[in-house]
Design a protein around this nucleic acid. Sequence first.
DNA 1: GTCCAGGGTAAGC
DNA 2: GCTTACCATGGA
Length: 266
Amino acid sequence: MQVIIKDDFDLEKIMNSGQVFRIQKSDNDSYCIVHQDKILYISKDGSNTYNVSCDQRTWNETWRDYFDLNRDYSKIRKDYAGNNNFVDVTMNFGQGLRILKQDPWEMLITFIISQRKSMKAIKSSIDKICLQFGVCLDDEIYKFPSPQNLCQASISEIQACGVGYRADYIKSAAESVATGALDLCSCAKKDDGELFYELCKVKGVGTKVANCIMLFGFGRVGRAPIDVWIERVIQDEFGGVNPFPEFGDVAGIIQQYFFFFKTQNK
DNA sequence: GTCCAGGGTAAGC
DNA sequence: GCTTACCATGGA
């Protein structure tokens, strides 16, 4: 089937923006994306036209939301252009980026793993976890393991995926979600403050990781995670003053332009 | 071998 | 409230 996407949409940039670790690029410029129990193969076929492997209904009900296609990113770039050179440069450089709305449970584990790890090392660990504990969906493509799958694993089995001391955190988080002590479904209805508070109760989840889970798993695009790269931006480009409050309810999107620019131009 | 990575926890103050 | 030592491991 074919779909038309007119707004900012660059899968290569999205794949390399540090928010998603479950996109694989194949030789023929086709991307394979795993989301929950679904696989999407998508490739460009014209300026605004894409070939997708799903039907219209699945596209509308699953992937439009996943790609955040109801938000006008070009308008956001236009709204914030012309005030600050660094903002202009990074928005231009990152044109095509979007904030994906991924599975909250997967984001919880993914960003617990992310602490003090490079993006490549994160992807390597996620791949191993899916291979070890996830269900096989298709040829060599594995679902991210469920909370039940993961809390049945031993600490040493989890550690074998290269996560080091984070294995304790992962096990504990999986137990919280599996037992219902942490209900991610009801979390989706909470406001930002309450959701942040709930996530920070999980061992291994602090301010930065909680904001990543909110931004990439709950679509809370007002949240701007501050990691080592963004901290450098604040020091080098804004004189040590956190600029994100001025970007209001799209601070997380601006943050993503900054992060992508910095990590691609190191 | 050395340094850094999308940080957090617990102890100490 | 704010510092600081420590945490395992992969990748450059």
